[in-house]
Design a protein around this nucleic acid. Structure first.
Lengths: 254, 254
DNA sequence: CGCTGTGTTGACAGGTCTCAATATAAGTGG
DNA sequence: CCACTTATATTGAGACCTGTCAACACAGCG
């Protein structure tokens, strides 16, 4: 839907304003660009970790595989996201990254990420904030999985996607087009595909969300928000403390 | 149990070796020390975020409160942990931090964290890795909550605590003493206290884990590990790429 | 010693899963 | 463009896991 922008700094400028130089610096991170077909695995759980990926175009899911063949999707990635970075702390990758649409990613070496800390402290800080943000999102998911019903989880999931798509595209309306199957949505919400179907069908009958094949139209946003049992997170867009502390010592020349 | 160490760098030296200077630099982060009684709230969800906390002594739980009075514990904190940092991305704190034992914390301003990026890139990188590590842990929790039964979740929880306590104290044996009630454990695993009780009792009868009041002795570690359905995470202790990329550009003098 | 919090156990209800069949859409090759 | 195959969605019936409610036992603590 959005055009390919190789230097799209999306997630890097959610918390600080980037200078033109910094945007260029970001572009330097990018390694070889890789195209992946729908359904293909970008990196499988258990493999060793040499790089992370920036998602340039398409949708990718990050999942943990369990012994009984079940799987839990831990994140649905949209363009601009950094993929696979939690595993930089591990000997063997935790997540399997799977393209669910045709995908374009750029490979970024771990060293390039590491060098940000010495050469581009503001970018490193931006990345850090972005990772903390992901942590909040995971915390909300845990609350949703641990303490709510099927309909609440589905409401929370739809709202989360709505909120994210709206950040990426301010023109995003109440209709979400998502290349996810009901089985995918089950793997996200910890439900079976059968029960996802029943519950979404109920949303539809109740006039809460119009559920069509890979398209959802939120009909009653406040009601859905209330049902989800989670607050709408207000991100600190340009926190004063961050800007101030990064300005304290200028970036060393070169 | 462990003596109070105000400069305990625990989480900061999990991924890189800190120099003596860096350990001192860390000590400078510490703000006023605060003692908190058992049961007291350190920071409540919804409050504005001016600081984070370093846990010096005692146990703290981090929880999300849901509308129906339910709550989900998202993290059990041990000494050395940084508390409340995900909320640095938010206008209003997501988590409520509650002392479940008498606690000593040190308050650290957000600016102090921010300044790490310009003044101490290696510490910033260490912090970054630590946050990514937390993300892996949250991902594992999500898989556990979304795709496993009560006994599997409890197994995963006990093993997680065992693994963490062992990192902190290499002499840690198979007996875990934990100041958590069964209701707490329910709030962690997304179960009711009643069902936690039944399941732990079953562990005890099966000779899997000896469950006593606030004390657990793992009797069959491999069996418990297998039951949990999660791999034991192998953290990248001193990743070569990290050391190398941080050495690339020396830290600017002062 | 009584109070309060925590642990334990039973009976029952309810939400979600499992299994299975069918419908519908999408994709493929002729 | 059609026939065929495959993936996905839909619906029903029954089983199972976990929650709810309630009562009681036990421990810690003032």
């Amino acid at each position: 839907m959005t055009s390919i922008d190789f230097f799209s700094p999306h997630r890097f400028c959610e918390f600080i304003e980037l200078t033109a130089d910094e945007r260029e610096g970001l572009a330097l991170l990018h390694g070889p660009v890789m195209r992946v077909e729908r359904g293909q695995v970008i990196r499988r759980s258990g493999e060793s970790v040499h790089e992370v990926f920036f998602l340039i175009d398409g949708w990718v899911i990050s999942s943990l595989d369990l012994p009984e063949g079940e799987r839990q999707i831990v994140k649905v990635h949209l363009p601009g996201d950094m993929l696979g970075s939690p595993s930089m702390t591990l000997e063997a990758a935790a997540e399997t990254l799977t393209a669910i649409t045709p995908v374009v990613v750029s490979r970024v070496s771990l060293s390039a990420i590491g060098r940000l800390f010495t050469t581009a402290p503001r970018l490193a800080a931006a990345l850090f904030m972005s990772v903390q943000q992901e942590r909040v999102i995971l915390m909300d998911r845990i609350a949703s999985l641990g303490r709510s019903t099927a309909s609440q989880r589905l409401a929370a999931f739809l709202l989360h996607m709505y909120d994210r798509m709206r950040v990426r595209d301010p023109a995003q309306g109440l209709t979400l087009s998502m290349p996810l199957t009901q089985e995918n949505i089950g793997d996200i919400t910890g439900l079976t595909a059968v029960h996802v179907n029943r519950t979404l069908r109920q949303f539809d009958e109740d006039g809460l969300v119009l559920c069509r094949r890979q398209s959802f139209t939120i009909l009653d946003l406040p009601k859905l928000r209330k049902l989800s049992a989670l607050p709408e997170r207000q991100w600190a867009r340009r926190p004063a403390w961050l800007e101030a502390s990064l300005a304290a010592v200028p970036v060393p020349a070169e």
